[in-house]
Measured scan of single mutants.
Amino acid sequence: MEVRTIKVFTTVDNINLHTQVVDMSMTYGQQFGPTYLDGADVTKIKPHNSHEGKTFYVLPNDDTLRVEAFEYYHTTDPSFLGRYMSALNHTKKWKYPQVNGLTSIKWADNNCYLATALLTLQQIELKFNPPALQDAYYRARAGEAANFCALILAYCNKTVGELGDVRETMSYLFQHANLDSCKRVLNVVCKTCGQQQTTLKGVEAVMYMGTLSYEQFKKGVQIPCTCGKQATKYLVQQESPFVMMSAPPAQYELKHGTFTCASEYTGNYQCGHYKHITSKETLYCIDGALLTKSSEYKGPITDVFYKENSYTTTIK
């Protein structure tokens, strides 16, 4: 009895394709271990004539594949690729409408935090270190965002349907971005203890939790000093293409032309909904596939993004 075979390709990165001759009487799992086709788990399936010449994702289970996976995804987590594939199996079914010149995501599976993050990423200057993220990001900007969303979920250790947080998501993504040249110098002034300067680099240099107003941050924000008295913390120097200011959701007025974009969060910790506000020729609110415009805006804002380049204080 002759062994019926077909020729397929296996890959971990969709760049390096490895030619395989597979036995049609055995499952993919018996031949390769966990195997995925377009995100779908085909591990328990036997090869079919229609699979001839198709590319299958496999887990990096030998040295060659491990090197290829690390170079593309910059992670050695053995569960990463499987999590990416199972997320992709959902995100490829989502709709990605162009809204006001940006790629958004039609609401499904509690994905409003991903839509808000995706919209924000198209408006701030950011370059990702893992080629996987950078490639998928370019495709997302062009309207094909399924891979990018699935990668975000995998890097953030999230599953489809789980509630997510924009600030946490951005923080994970910033860790995989090139923020080497970003720098922030802060000064804390206390009447009792004097003053202390701190220099922050990388992710810490672009994120701040405690106030939404970048102007206020430049002037000074009140913080408790270690001595128990009130101290003032203010920005001395900022070198970065953008800054992200966050605070627990509270009524906040966004003035046209003073910011790049913002995240609105309605609801409580267990259950809520994100919308995205962007400042173009007027203010726009993007909620999944829905767009509304207004000249002014007041609502429960939790993150505001500002364009920056270089700032030095005039406070002496």
Rank of each mutant, 00 (worst) to 15 (best):
N157G: 11
G53P: 07
F148D: 02
A289F: 02
F174N: 00
V203C: 10
D109R: 09
Q20A: 12
L17K: 14
P131A: 04
S181F: 10
C285I: 15
E296S: 15
S240N: 01
E239N: 07
D109T: 06
A289T: 07
C112V: 07
Q230M: 15
I277F: 11
H256V: 15
V22Q: 02
T43A: 11
L235M: 02
F80G: 02
G288E: 01
T116Y: 06
K106V: 11
M170L: 13
S50E: 14
S50D: 13
L290R: 11
T103M: 03
L163F: 11
R66C: 08
E281A: 02
Q196W: 14
S310T: 14
D180N: 11
G194H: 05
V3L: 13
G101C: 06
K92F: 12
G202L: 04
L153P: 06
L283Y: 01
Y57H: 12
H276A: 03
Y72H: 14
Q122A: 06
T258H: 13
K158E: 03
T169M: 08
H273Y: 01
N268S: 15
T192G: 09
Y208A: 07
T314E: 12
T226V: 15
E162V: 02
M85E: 04
L37P: 05
G288C: 02
Y138V: 15
L163E: 04
K183I: 10
W107H: 08
S263Y: 01
P300L: 10
F148W: 04
V160A: 03
G164Y: 01
K92G: 07
C149P: 04
L65W: 08
E168K: 10
T10N: 14
H90Y: 14
V203P: 13
V188Y: 08
A40L: 13
P241M: 01
Y214M: 08
T266M: 03
W107V: 06
C193W: 02
T116V: 15
C225G: 04
R184I: 04
L212D: 02
N14Y: 08
T312F: 12
A132C: 03
R184Y: 00
C190M: 04
C225I: 00
L200H: 07
N16D: 11
L126K: 10
K127Q: 15
Y269A: 12
K106A: 15
Y36N: 04
G210D: 00
A108C: 15
I301N: 08
G53C: 12
A247E: 00
L179T: 04
D63H: 11
P300T: 14
L290N: 15
T314L: 15
K255H: 09
Q251T: 15
T10Q: 09
S181M: 11
F148G: 04
V236L: 08
T55P: 07
D62I: 08
E2I: 10
T198K: 12
R66Q: 12
I315L: 15
T292K: 12
D62P: 08
M26D: 06
I124R: 08
R141S: 10
Q98F: 08
E264D: 03
Q134Y: 07
V3C: 13
K46T: 15
E308P: 08
N14K: 00
R66M: 15
G299Y: 00
M170E: 05
D165C: 10
G39R: 05
M244N: 01
F70P: 04
H90T: 12
N111D: 00
C156I: 09
K298G: 04
I105Q: 02
F9V: 09
Y311M: 09
S104C: 01
K54H: 12
Q196P: 03
K106N: 06
K218P: 01
C156T: 13
T169R: 04
V304I: 11
Y36Q: 10
D303G: 00
K92P: 03
H18Y: 06
H48G: 12
E125V: 03
N157V: 01
T55I: 14
A115R: 05
E144S: 11
H176L: 13
W94Y: 00
V221S: 03
A231G: 01
P131E: 00
P241Q: 06
A132S: 07
I301E: 02
F242G: 00
F174W: 07
H18A: 11
A69W: 09
S295D: 15
I124K: 02
Q238Y: 05
K316F: 15
S240E: 05
C182I: 02
G39P: 05
G220M: 01
T302I: 05
Q195F: 08
V22Y: 03
L212V: 11
C149R: 06
E204I: 00
E168R: 09
E215Q: 09
N111P: 01
C193R: 00
A132T: 03
N187C: 14
G82I: 12
H276C: 09
E204T: 01
V67S: 15
A136R: 04
E68K: 11
K183W: 15
I152E: 01
I124F: 06
T258L: 04
K92M: 08
T232G: 01
L291P: 01
A108Y: 05
L235V: 10
G39Q: 09
Y297S: 01
A40M: 13
T312H: 14
S295G: 10
K7D: 14
M209K: 10
C190W: 01
G202K: 08
L17Y: 08
T312M: 14
A250N: 10
G161D: 01
Q197G: 06
L119R: 06
Y284H: 06
T27G: 08
P241G: 11
D135H: 13
L153V: 11
A177L: 01
V243Q: 00
A231N: 03
W94P: 03
V99P: 09
D13M: 00
T192A: 11
Q197R: 11
S86Q: 15
T226Y: 10
P97D: 11
T19L: 12
M85I: 11
T116K: 08
E168N: 05
T43V: 08
D62F: 01
P249H: 02
G299T: 01
H18F: 09
K54S: 14
D109V: 11
E2R: 12
E204W: 06
G272Y: 05
K275E: 05
D62H: 09
E2G: 06
F174P: 07
S86A: 14
H51K: 02
K316E: 15
L114S: 04
N129D: 08
A150E: 07
H273F: 02
P300H: 09
F9P: 08
A140H: 00
G101P: 04
T10W: 05
A136G: 08
T302F: 00
I223A: 13
L200P: 02
R66F: 12
G164E: 04
F80R: 06
A231C: 04
A108G: 04
Q270T: 15
S104V: 08
L163Y: 15
G194Y: 03
Y172W: 09
T199A: 15
Q222W: 05
H18C: 07
Q216A: 13
S86H: 09
